[in-house]
Write a protein that binds this DNA or RNA. Structure first.
Ligand code: SF4
Ligand code: SF4
Lengths: 152, 152
DNA sequence: GCAATTAGCACCTTTTGAGTGCGCTTTGGA
DNA sequence: TCCAAAGCGCACTCAAAAGGTGCTAATTGC
């Protein structure tokens, strides 16, 4: 449906909070105190982000999560890839397993190639949008992010 | 899920076929003879495209559809808008009715503005991808080799 | 009149997304 | 030592969306 899932939004908000904490651990409770989000679901999302290597987790009583990389090196694309799986855009080019035999139209599909081009460009856009640019949006507008995306 | 619906794909394929026909009427049956698609669903999609003003319909025995505009003036964005409704990308900025009271995070959301920027750029991308570019992209395969269409 | 075709609406089925239950593990601190 | 706070893992329910179909008109060339 050409729309980000709420899981992705939750992930982004959580990452923004972690970025604000600058390396300090932040628990799910702390995140949900800042943003009114369903705690359990956010926990699930953070867990997935941990599996994807975007955050590190600290267990135990005073545990929580920290950013695994600098905010400049985490992109919207990373988050989407971690939380929504593959970057398909079409049903034919799902990267790994195409169950059900794939699309019947494929051998004669005139739109496959151009749509893949659109997908690539979209993905480039996501890859060039860093967590840093999201964080700085809170206070002032970062024009640097726009310039980076504008490359075509 | 950041993916085009099958309805959109069907619509694009149908429009490509209509574009190949260069103003001649093409029925749903004809389209589904060229592409192995579920006839009824394609009919539903064409109907929606007609409502959106992208195609004209001719009823009756030898009826069908024709392009309402030149292929240069139909964009991927038009098709998506016609078949998937609004261009949300996030749940907060759905244009018309926001049922359920909208997002609770909104007053303090740090990612709303930057995500809207991404949405706008994505939309620009879709608006700049014309049906003409899809048609010419597909024609690296000669129509004669397809076997189904022989009258051009 | 007949057959082909679009129009309209409602319905069903499958898939996906969102959220929760429940028990376990880890760990710091009282 | 014990407990509370936090993450871990899995499976499960519930709701919404997407995909597809049934059925009955209305239109129109032959
Ligand atoms: S219709 Fe074309 S673009 Fe769509 S899934 Fe099939 S092969 Fe891919
Ligand atoms: S979290 Fe922010 S971007 Fe997402 S719907 Fe709410 S206000 Fe919009």
């Amino acid at each position: 449906m050409l729309q980000l899932t709420k899981r992705t939004e939750y992930g982004l908000l959580a990452l923004v909070h972690l970025a604000d904490r600058e390396g300090a651990v932040a628990s799910v409770r702390e995140i949900c105190e800042r943003f009114p989000l369903p705690k359990r679901t956010v926990a699930e999302v953070l867990k997935d982000l941990q599996h994807a290597g975007l955050v590190d987790s600290i267990r135990g009583s005073s545990g929580g999560y920290t950013l695994a990389r600098a905010p400049e090196q985490v992109t919207l694309g990373d988050v989407v890839r971690a939380l929504e799986g593959a970057p398909p855009l079409t049903t034919c080019e799902s990267p790994i397993v195409l169950k059900g035999g794939g699309c019947e139209v494929q051998p004669m599909c005139p739109i496959k190639s151009p749509i893949q081009r659109v997908r690539e460009r979209l993905w480039q856009m996501l890859e060039h949008t860093t967590l840093r640019s999201l964080v700085s949006k809170g206070s002032h507008v970062s024009l640097g992010a726009l310039g980076a995306v504008e490359s075509n």
